[in-house]
């Protein structure tokens, strides 16, 4: 059995999980683009869900994934259910591939996140296109995917304690 990731009591950790997920939704939806700069906002809700489902899987049951996806849809004004379905699909597949527990080294975790992105984005694009009745543009999704993939390690390290930096996810 692996040592615990964090010595904080589970209740405190759970509160931190809820806060971080809410913050990710707020920052993802808020107008954070400076002047006319490019919109390089990564998929913060997906990153946060993925990190918590890796670090503390029991904090992220399917209902949490569904609710976060739904809030994402509401706050971005999109069709309800699109991101909920995309997140559910990607994270359920990712979990089913890790029955013995995911690796907690940053390298493999990063690769797993890329795989999750590679599932979530096409699902969102396909379902979203069906919902709006025409092909949705691919460019915004590609930009978000690249930004998410590149920024993932940085954001992931924010979730862990300094002592765990070498084995990023608590190995």
């Amino acid at each position: 059995m692996r040592p615990p990731i964090d010595s904080r009591p589970p209740f405190g950790l759970m509160v931190w999980a809820v806060i971080s997920i809410l913050l990710s939704l707020i920052f993802y939806s808020a107008p954070l683009r400076i002047a006319n700069g490019p919109d390089l906002m990564p998929m913060l809700p997906l990153i946060t869900l993925f990190i918590w489902s890796t670090v503390r899987p029991r904090f992220i049951p399917p209902i949490v994934i569904f609710v976060v996806g739904l809030l994402n849809d509401v706050l971005t004004g999109g069709v309800l259910g699109v991101w909920a379905l995309a997140y559910l699909t990607a994270l359920t597949i990712a979990r089913s591939r890790d029955e013995d527990g995911p690796s907690r080294e940053i390298g493999p975790v990063w690769i797993r996140f890329i795989v999750v992105l590679a599932i979530a984005m096409p699902v969102a694009w396909g379902v979203g296109s069906l919902a709006i009745g025409q092909l949705a543009p691919v460019r915004p999704l590609l930009i978000e995917s690249v930004a998410s993939g590149l920024m993932f390690p940085l954001l992931a390290l924010l979730f862990i304690r300094r002592r765990n930096l070498r084995g990023a996810f608590g190995s």
Binding site: Y28, A30, P31, T76, G77, G78, V79, W125, R139, P140
Partner: peptide, 10 residues
């Protein structure tokens, strides 16, 4: 403006 998501769907 409180939110400005330029997503692919909306």
């Amino acid at each position: 403006t409180l939110g400005d998501p330029d997503g692919p769907f909306v």
